[in-house]
């Protein structure tokens, strides 16, 4: 895997995260559906224990309803997980 492969792979992820993410279904997911049916969904609607900087993929400073809110979150997330996974991997490689 050379630099070119990495860039192509990252670009694919960026395109999915930015261009497709606004079209994602907003139906409840499997767990939420079960929680609704079983009547415990409200238990999860409490304030989060730790506040996140970008809750629910709504990018700050952008109108929540615009597609950019989700797209920019996609871009941000793709870059963060990429760097985080590389960092974890590098730490695990034995030093020569």
């Amino acid at each position: 895997m050379n630099k070119r492969d990495i860039i192509i792979g990252l670009l694919i992820a960026v395109v999915i995260g930015m261009a497709l993410s606004p079209f994602a279904s907003s139906f409840p997911d499997g767990l939420e559906w079960v929680a609704e049916k079983m009547g415990f969904i409200a238990k999860g609607e409490v304030a989060p224990v730790v506040k996140s900087p970008v809750p629910d993929y709504a990018f700050p400073f952008v109108n929540e309803k615009s597609v950019w809110a989700t797209s920019l979150s996609g871009l941000l997330g793709v870059l963060i997980v990429f760097l985080a996974a590389i960092a974890v991997g590098k730490l695990l490689i034995p030093k020569k």
Binding site: M1, V81, G89
Partner: peptide, 16 residues
Amino acid sequence: MGVMSAFVFAAQMINF
């Protein structure tokens, strides 16, 4: 691992 993480994160945003 880096590219895979990026891809999985992006793909997990796409609820079908």
